[in-house]
Design a protein around this nucleic acid. Structure first.
Length: 644
RNA sequence: GCCGAUGUAGCUCAGUUGGCCAGAGCAGCUGAUUUGUAAUCAGCCGGUCGGCGGUUCGAAUCCGUCCAUCGGCUCCA
């Protein structure tokens, strides 16, 4: 007798082994048709796998992440099957499901696969899907698996098998295609109704730059054609928020081939936006006890030899700057910390001074490889909202906490909710890779985790992701099309204080080494603004937006009054302009709407007579008329409210 | 850097298999219009068809190469 417990607590009993699919059938035929995978106790398995003992059972359909994963992973197999038919010499690497769809890494040998070939593969896949092929699982010994893939002449699968333990190796057969796979898979291919192979890319085998590059084909499938159409429409919509597109449309920034790749040029409106952000942070930092510093854009090569960056990154940096003096070399600064260390060293410090916090909007230059450049999110010249905190080891936690407060203040002011926090700690297996005492590491790591808990952050810990010089916490945000970017960062550093021989005199009159905390709540202004643009689709918060108000006179006759309105707004520090073109009001409104200007003030005969303005809010429409002073106050109150 | 794709006016895009002085809309300029909540009309200006080299009687179109951009991989102090 087998007892199967369902999520609602109900229990079903069976005489002998039963499959998840059988259980589903018993509930309803419809459910059985939609079941894609199942969770038996804690493992997600095929819905067709016999359950032989008492178990908790959850059924997964397309509505569950696990169901989608099974569908897409199965689609990867289906694609491989189609490819094996169309290109018999193809060898297969790995083909997992991903967040949105799946991919398969394939070695096509001499044959070059181009985008035009994808249609053909799609067609073959659909044809195979219609056959409702089942996924047949079989357990196999390591030796048999090796023999199988040797015979198939697939060195990639052989390598994968070699890394597996005997006894845990399973194969899945779908049509004539047999693949090494842990599963789970959907019951049969009939559920795959709509297929789109989205792109083709190169991908190094096992992610290793030194190994062969395979052809990666990305795709996505759906149980209904309509869903594919909707998905593609959603993608199109998302592309409208792309910061590269909006940056151009809203005249925020541009690039010039003459200036150079990855070197953004900030246009007047973008510069205002950026300045507003900088001022906001400067104010917050001032309140938090930071001292502004300013350092030059270049530094003697020896500075970076001391910091160690020359040895590590010298080759991949902008080349050395030489001078008329022989053997004199400078570097374009790739980070601000070495300069700040020298500021710290400019005078002796007492424990009573600590923590010392030096802040600078420091522009740095890094020679990113050509294929890595990306709009404003990955550039070669960018400005960090950098600061370095020098403190005693037992101050790390409090400092970390106060940095977190700043980060949260910023995220709140900008209505950033969709971020994740990553805490990067040591790899416990390789302690020799890290500099600094165990005791200090432990102190810092615990402090970070505690602060994250206190802030009730949704964080995940990554072991082994810490830099060799200290643990860190990063804030990650997604862009319009789902890519994840790192924004703010807080890093503990035991290395630079050592290398620059930073000291403070303690209460014991002995010299001590301070701990250094690097922190940049925005990360870089460039990347932050890029993400911000996509986040708000170009509709910036009122306090930040370059143009807050536009005055739209009905005709030339009201130019004088418009100017009066303008001057009053300017007196109130409101950023406003007049659209004095000889256009119809409808046209002026349309243009202002497209420029995402939050408020439009329409002025004509009535307004002039009453000293009022007719207010229209971007995206909202007509708000009626109000006294001019009343409007100015409304704007200022809103700005104050948002900036906290 | 690697794989694949793209590059025509400030912007968005047309330009069939190589063939007349390379087109359109928007923006810009000039003029007319003086306008009430998402595009007034007309005329004009604007392009070494990404750069360089080649094939050809003839190249935006074919080939090579370099650059930039886009989708990925790798990388990201």
């Amino acid at each position: 007798m087998i007892k199967i417990t369902l999520p609602d607590g109900s229990v079903k009993e069976y005489q002998e082994s039963v499959t998840a699919l059988d259980v589903a059938k018993e509930i309803s035929e419809g459910l059985a048709r939609n079941v894609l995978a199942a969770k038996v106790n804690d493992s997600v398995v095929d819905a067709t796998l016999p359950i032989t003992e008492d178990a908790d059972l959850t059924l997964f359909t397309w509505n569950d992440t696990e169901g989608k994963a099974a569908m897409w992973h199965s689609s990867a197999h289906l694609m491989a099957e189609a490819i094996e038919i169309l290109y018999p010499s193809a060898k297969f690497g790995i083909g997992p499901d991903i967040e949105r769809g799946f991919y398969y890494d394939i070695d096509f040998g001499e044959k070059d696969i181009v985008e035009a070939d994808l249609k053909n593969i799609e067609k073959k896949m659909l044809e195979l899907a219609k056959q409702k092929q089942t996924f047949e699982r079989s357990m196999i010994s390591k030796q048999d698996a090796l023999d199988f893939f040797t015979k198939k002449d697939d060195e990639y699968k052989m390598e994968l098998v070699n890394d597996l333990e005997d006894g845990e190796i399973s194969l899945y057969k779908c049509g004539d295609f047999v693949d090494l796979c842990r599963g789970p898979h959907i019951p049969h291919t009939g559920g795959i109704k709509a297929i789109k192979l989205t792109s083709i890319a190169g991908a190094y085998w096992r992610g290793d730059e030194k190994r062969k590059q395979l052809t990666r084909i990305y795709g996505i499938t759906f149980p209904k054609k309509k869903e594919l159409t909707e998905y593609l429409e959603l993608l199109e919509e998302a592309k409208k928020r792309d910061h590269r597109k909006l940056g151009k449309e809203l005249e925020l920034f541009t690039f010039s081939q003459k200036v150079g790749a990855g070197l953004p040029l900030w246009l007047p409106k973008g510069a205002i936006l950026r300045e507003n952000l900088e001022n906001f942070l400067k104010k917050v930092q001032k309140e938090a006890g930071y001292q502004p510093v300013i350092t030059p854009h270049i530094g003697d090569v020896n500075l970076y030899k001391t910091s160690g960056h020359y040895q590590k990154y010298g080759e991949d940096s902008f080349r050395t700057i030489t001078t008329p003096v022989e053997n004199e070399e400078y570097f374009l600064k790739p980070m601000n910390c070495p300069h700040h260390c020298e500021i710290y060293n400019a005078k002796p410090h007492s424990y009573k001074d600590l923590p010392v916090r030096y802040a600078e909007f420091g522009t740095v230059y890094r020679y990113e490889k050509s294929g890595e450049l990306h709009g404003l999110t990955r550039v070669r010249g960018f400005t960090q909202d950098d600061a370095h905190i020098f403190c005693a080891p037992d101050q790390v936690k409090d400092e970390f906490k106060s940095v977190m407060d700043i980060v949260m203040k910023i995220f709140t002011a900008l209505d950033f909710k969709d971020f994740t926090t990553q805490i990067s700690l040591r790899d416990p297996n390789t302690p020799e890779k890290y500099i600094g005492s165990d005791e200090n590491w432990e102190k810092a790591e615990n402090a970070i985790i505690e602060v994250a808990k206190e802030q009730k952050l949704d964080y995940k810990i990554e072991y082994g992701e810490a830099a060799f010089y200290g643990p860190k916490m990063d804030f990650m945000v997604r862009d319009a099309i789902g890519r994840s970017w790192q924004l703010g960062t807080i890093q503990v550093d035991y290395n630079l204080p050592e290398r620059f021989e930073l000291e403070y005199v303690g209460s014991d009159n002995e010299k001590h080494r301070p701990v250094m905390i690097h922190r940049a709540p925005f990360g870089s202004l460039e990347r932050f603004i890029a993400v911000l643009i996509e986040h708000c689709a170009g509709k910036f918060p009122l306090w930040l937006t370059p143009e807050q108000v536009i005055i739209l006179p009905i005709s030339e006759k009201y130019q004088k009054y418009s100017e009066k309105v303008l001057s009053l707004l300017k007196k109130n520090d409101i950023r406003a302009e007049i659209d004095a073109r000889s256009e119809k009001t409808g046209r002026k409104i349309r243009d202002a709407e497209l420029k995402r200007i939050p408020y439009m003030l329409i002025v004509g005969e009535k307004e002039e007579a009453d000293g009022t303005v007719s207010v229209r809010q971007q995206g909202e429409g007509d708000k009626g008329s109000m006294q001019l002073e009343e409007f100015a106050k409304l704007i200022n109150d809103e700005v104050i409210k948002m900036m906290g």
